[in-house]
Design a protein around this nucleic acid. Sequence first.
DNA 1: GTTAGCACTCTATATTCCTGAGTGCTAATT
DNA 2: AATTAGCACTCAGGAATATAGAGTGCTAAC
Lengths: 342, 342
Amino acid sequence: MKDRKLKILAAVVEEYVRTGEPVGSKAIAMLPDIGVSAATVRNDMAMLEQLGYLEQPHTSAGRVPTINGYRLYIDKLMTPPSLSGEERERLDDMLESQGPMTEELLIQNATTALAELTQCAAVVSDFSPKFSIISKVEVIPTGKRMYVILLITSGGSIKNKACRLEIDLTTEQLKMFSKYLAENLEGVSVGDLSEEMMDRITAAMGAYMMTMAPLVQGICELSRDLRQHALMFSGERNLFSYEDLDKMEVVRFIEHKDELRELLDDSFSGIRVLFGESDDSFVIGNSSMIVSKYRKGERNVGSLGVIGPMRLDYAKVIPYLEYFSQKITDLISQEDEDDEEY
Amino acid sequence: MKDRKLKILAAVVEEYVRTGEPVGSKAIAMLPDIGVSAATVRNDMAMLEQLGYLEQPHTSAGRVPTINGYRLYIDKLMTPPSLSGEERERLDDMLESQGPMTEELLIQNATTALAELTQCAAVVSDFSPKFSIISKVEVIPTGKRMYVILLITSGGSIKNKACRLEIDLTTEQLKMFSKYLAENLEGVSVGDLSEEMMDRITAAMGAYMMTMAPLVQGICELSRDLRQHALMFSGERNLFSYEDLDKMEVVRFIEHKDELRELLDDSFSGIRVLFGESDDSFVIGNSSMIVSKYRKGERNVGSLGVIGPMRLDYAKVIPYLEYFSQKITDLISQEDEDDEEY
DNA sequence: GTTAGCACTCTATATTCCTGAGTGCTAATT
DNA sequence: AATTAGCACTCAGGAATATAGAGTGCTAAC
């Protein structure tokens, strides 16, 4: 396609993103680096409309990009600015928090920062805990027949759960059980904790099987929690300030976390942009979602996404998203190496 | 004031709550237990308007209750149904959850249930942890120079925090420190954990002061977390379905948690109803908030509230709120006694 | 291939008109 | 004195109409 037409398409997208109004031939012709008359622009626009990249809300209005128009713009036309040094520093600052940094915290910070930066909602589906390693299991008596199970992973997450037993354990029994757990679970990947493993542990309890059952059950639940993809949101409220998003649809969408999780958990790598209404399960009209993966070593372990109006400054947002994904990848992969070295 | 006028006021409130439309004299006259003509109702309504209990959106519209109208209705006129046995059972079911019940969980369940039942937002400001007792403090080594502090209260909450030290502790040191903590902190009320107490602990460390500092610091932070009023929300989304609430105001209000906390944390006992706009700090127009306290023993330890449109079925909602507050009071006070007995 | 000119289209806004629900008042009734 | 029927009056809100202006497509000239 002719170069000028593409330039005009890009200009329409950018102008529409900027103003929110359908953009007319005159506005485009006046832009500095177009250099042709409004009439010429009009001809090109008519052509672009035929090709399905633009559309008119009504006959006598300006043009608005179609989903295909946005897609072409994002894939081929836009020129995302590369982040300056200062900007990287600013972003790095936003990721940091005081105290020891766990993976969970890191990811939480990233979503908050993304939501803040883009004035959109940010979402993350994290299943990295599944690939972390159990570094410590403890059973701690806390009261009559009450015990707390403590489970710590290489990623730095600490989970606990209270259990009530039928009878109190002797110090002896507790020590044995702890030792057994330590030997059998520490060093094991969370993803490898299976039902059968638990069954084996239960079986190994022998005569104490019934007594210990709630504890084993508790460990089961903790590990299930860890294996489950955590879905975290930030900045949902930002979505309510966009006039062109339907509030009810937004609310409904945020509620159906399962659908969202499915959307995020595919095997696609790199940046992907979904548009509301085009895709079955992403149902907020006039909205779009940009998704990027982060990895742990070579493996995809989570998705980071930004949800906003379709009328979004993709050229600005995408670099942020890329930077954060890369940063998370670097940090959690590095943590991994630390652990191996340890 | 004449009995019939009050009856008419109540009818107007109920009819307006039901329909959302300003209610006219005819609609009231047609109600079964009124038994006077529309003209009479009109006269009474004019009187009620003069007294400030009703108002007209415009000359030729029906009447709408004013804030004073609602207030009078709530204080004197409405007849809240007492909950049936089945209903109590149903509510009790909603409060329960599997696994050991902590105070936190109980309160969380109550807000969720309230939001669900009333189709409003429910909020709770809980400072009961402040009055619970530390039942266990543990320091657990989890890796090179990494330690986890575990803090368990009589209320059943379990808090933990990871700390990194400058150097590793010997088993000896760890044991000593643990013992010291157990002796000095276990049995102490969370509210009594003061800065000076922490200073004393730090001082007692003697030569190890510097080494242990992060751990003491960590305990400090954990106890600060416990002392802080926790604010929990549920069902915010429900507010978005009410046409007469301004979405932006709702979002802004939900964000300013501090204001909300202040509103909830007064010393008032019993049920209180606030109206948007009348009160400075509760700023959602056309909305109201019903607040009730729950106690631990004789002491107020939290507020449970429902936020909804001013046009709310108070007679239905208030009994729910009362029931839950009482139930929470019963349960957490009882836990307390259990502990003392233990 | 590009551009100026022009008739045409169509939304958004303002203006007017109309209807009907609801009122307040007065006079009659109980 | 309280209640009620009757009636003129008010006013929001919807329908109908007029107006303005932004933007288009097309044609003819460059």
